[in-house]
């Protein structure tokens, strides 16, 4: 079964073709980073405008490049959670294409896409596993028995980890998207100079909170700021390193706890922050000690992409699930409400 996947939930237009027999045949991504960096964050109306401009040419490109123009058996598109205007573009184009092609279509949960992205790699993890979904919009620990069988173990009570990264980066006047830029700056920093808190790690439970860490960062930046409004370059790097270390440690502690609590031995990490090298490194170290393994997707499939949507949609279409022609996007959509495959 050959599936066209479309992702437009935020600021990346992603298109891919996945074949259940042959694997991923092709994928393309158009990122709007340049467009939004002037504003220091995603402007929803501009994101929607760019999706409607870029999506169809990208689809044409991928279909031509994979020789799939007359060979698509189903269409998968992100139908939530995300920015409503952005979601609508991908859902409307995707659902209408399927109607014209007379093939089934399915709306995919964006975070299920992320969660299943490591399965696109060679040597994919077997079910069951614990998933850490960590991005600009989500920080969740989920016990995964199978596709669509999700038990929420814990989640952020306030900011998502990626959101905290972006906000801390903004305090250091780094460009949008701040997360990767902050991680880059942290490489130059002395991780021992500042000691940031590891929120909610000293008590039981698997929930997260990152807003206090954000305030702590703000205060540290203010304390060391020069006349320019920023600390000197080395201090900025040291703050970045301390901040990243605090977030990474917090995530690692909770992941280890989640594995111990569930008795599972496999962890997958997915979402934009799962591309963070320090997180990958420290998780590998920590999990080796408890005879557990960590899995993740290649860098380009950690952030938003069409491949994960094509893959997740394909799994559901293969068992006969599909949507009717009523296009219904869901800006909020709890992962636990999905049906099992």
């Amino acid at each position: 079964m050959r599936i066209l996947g479309i992702e437009t939930s935020c600021d990346e237009t992603g298109v891919a073709v996945y074949d259940s027999e042959q694997g991923l045949l092709g994928h393309r991504l158009y990122s709007q980073i340049k467009l939004h960096s002037e504003y220091g964050g995603v402007v929803p109306e501009l994101a929607s405008r760019d999706h409607v401009r870029k999506l169809l040419p990208l689809i044409e490109d991928v279909l031509t490049g994979t020789d799939s123009k007359d060979a698509i058996d189903g269409v998968a598109f992100t139908s939530g959670p995300g920015l409503i205007g952005a979601l609508l573009v991908g859902a409307c184009v995707g659902r209408s294409l399927a109607m014209a092609w007379n093939c089934p279509a399915i709306g995919v949960h964006h975070m299920e896409g992320h969660l299943l992205a490591p399965l696109l790699e060679d040597n994919p993890p077997e079910f069951p596993f614990v998933a850490l979904l960590v991005s600009g919009g989500h920080t969740q620990l989920v016990a995964v028995k199978g596709i669509g069988q999700y038990e929420m173990l814990g989640e952020s009570l306030d900011d998502a980890a990626g959101e905290a990264f972006d906000k801390a980066a903004k305090m250091l006047d780094l460009d949008y998207p701040g997360g990767p830029n902050l991680a880059k700056l942290a490489e130059q920093g002395d991780v021992t100079r500042f000691k940031f808190p590891r929120p909610m790690t000293d008590r039981p439970g698997l929930d997260f909170s990152f807003s206090g860490l954000k305030t702590f960062t703000l205060n540290t930046v203010a304390e060391h700021s020069l006349a320019s409004g920023l600390p000197d370059d080395q201090t900025c790097a040291d703050i970045a390193a301390a901040f990243q270390e605090a977030v990474v440690d917090t995530l690692v502690i909770k992941c280890r706890r989640a594995l111990q609590q569930t008795g599972l031995k496999r962890l997958i990490i997915a979402g934009g922050v799962s591309a963070n090298s320090r997180l990958r490194e420290k998780l590998q170290q920590a999990l080796a000690k408890i005879q557990s393994e960590v899995f993740y997707a290649r860098h380009e499939f950690c952030t938003d992409n069409g491949a994960m949507i094509a893959f997740a949609g394909c799994q559901r279409l293969l068992v006969g699930q599909q949507d009717d022609v009523v296009i219904d996007v869901k800006p909020r959509w709890p992962l636990q409400t999905l049906s099992a495959v």
């Binding site: 109306e45 609508l88 014209a100």
Partner: peptide
Amino acid sequence: SFTGIRICLSIAQGLAYGS
């Protein structure tokens, strides 16, 4: 309506490209 216009164009694009 910005959103309405995009819904209309996106649906037209999907139907037209697919047919």
